[in-house]
């Protein structure tokens, strides 16, 4: 059974059709990409999968369950995490707090425990803190645990955001343009990081990306959309030479 299966997903914003009849199947362990020119509807797909929009039509089946129409925090609790094109960390809190708050789906105590500081509260807070530290260590971020993300360099912020998404122990990770705004050295590091977490955590990853170097070296399968419609899919090599894709990105050549 596929991990994620999207069937005939369609989204209208008023009269504007942002996405038509989108279909996609992702198997467990895949690392696939979604590309397309600006405004093609890529982020709309992610927003639909992660629960920010209610789809006009269509089904999103994750792990055998239709998740279309669930709230984002419910989707996250089921095992889909995502990052954003523009980094969305809680910049005024420490990196450690950023990781700890992401455990909201798995706190293990109630409001009563919180106010009475029961043993259940103490144990769970300790578990969350220890796990967060352990996690930061795996991600090589431990030395920044008490720093505020806003004081870190951009590439490092990106890494913290990916770490935060991973800390909810997702089965599927959605990366929305992870290489946006990074310089070439950072991009190289990011490619290594993504392929490392892909293996290390046995994750399924679906990414939106513009930079061909990233997509070509990471993804095994690509899907190309333009104006909300699927125009091509295949391996990176096939996509690179597909005339439809070249036309969508560069125009059809008549001047």
């Amino acid at each position: 059974m596929a991990l994620l299966e999207i069937k005939n997903l369609t989204q209208y914003f008023g009269g504007l059709c942002a996405l038509t009849e989108f279909n996609m199947t992702i198997e467990e362990g895949d690392l696939v990409g979604l590309i397309g020119p600006n405004g093609a509807g890529k982020t709309t797909v992610f927003n639909l999968v992660s629960g920010f929009y209610q789809p006009t039509r269509g089904e999103i089946i994750f792990n055998g369950k239709n998740i279309a129409g669930l709230k984002p925090h419910q989707v996250t609790a089921l095992g889909i995490a995502r990052t954003f094109q523009n980094i969305r960390l809680w910049h005024e809190m420490s990196v450690l707090d950023n990781i700890m708050i992401a455990q909201h789906y798995n706190l293990g105590y109630s409001l009563k425990d919180l106010f009475l500081r029961t043993r259940r509260y103490q144990e769970n807070e300790k578990r969350i803190r220890d796990e967060a530290y352990k996690f930061l260590e795996i991600m090589n971020l431990k030395e920044y645990a008490l720093e505020k993300p806003k004081n870190l360099p951009y590439g490092m912020q990106r890494k913290v955001e990916i770490a935060r998404a991973l800390s909810v122990k997702p089965k599927l990770l959605l990366l929305d343009e992870p290489a946006a705004g990074l310089n070439s050295a950072d991009v190289k590091e990011l490619i290594e990081l993504i392929s490392w977490i892909h293996k290390e955590f046995k994750l399924t990853i679906w990414m939106i990306e513009h930079q061909m170097t990233v997509v070509m070296s990471l993804c095994s399968w690509l899907k190309v959309i333009d104006f909300g419609a699927t125009i091509a899919e295949g391996t990176p090599e096939e996509i690179q030479n597909n005339p439809e894709v070249i036309k969508a990105y560069l125009g059809d050549g008549k001047i």
Binding site: S50, F52, K71, P72, H73, T76, A77, A81, R82, F84, R88, L89, W90, H91, E92, M93, D97, M100, I101, A102, Q103, H104, Y105, N106, L107, Y109, L111, L114, Y121, E125, I128, R164, A165, V168
Partner: peptide
């Protein structure tokens, strides 16, 4: 508490809070 810090997360970025499993 980690639970209560959820409201600080809402202050700093509500979208991020919702996507990181804060109800």
């Amino acid at each position: 508490s980690t639970y209560g810090k959820g409201i600080i997360a809402i202050h700093q970025d509500e979208v991020a809070a919702e996507i990181m499993s804060v109800n």
